[in-house]
Amino acid sequence: MAAIGKSIISTKTRGDLVYVRTILIHPQHTGRAKDKKTKRLIPELYVNRITVKNGGKVVTTMNAGAALSQNPYIEITLSASKASRIQVTWRDTSGKSWNNSKSV
């Protein structure tokens, strides 16, 4: 599988809205599953904060639990007249964060 932290942003303009879809490669360990080989609980590691910026200004913030599925996928909208350069930042429980950006 592709390395953790790689992401894609895809945008589609429909009428006066820009649909922003983004996906991140991340294992999303909930902290409740056991490793099949070692029989120990896999420690939790999941994305807990997602920030979407448009032209440098914060537009949407999301606080998530472990409920997003593996390789989390998110889709939101932006007003087409205001959308310029979209930047998505994902941050997980270990503090690591990843950025990706795309111009509309």
Binding site: V18, V58, T60, N63, A67, L68, Y73, I74, I76, S79
Partner: peptide, 20 residues
């Protein structure tokens, strides 16, 4: 599961994701 905070620049209060 998740909380999303919106601003007027979002156009529509829309959200789509895959959950567990």
């Amino acid at each position: 599961a998740i909380t999303i905070n919106y601003k007027p620049d979002n156009g529509k209060a829309y959200f789509n994701a895959r959950m567990r």
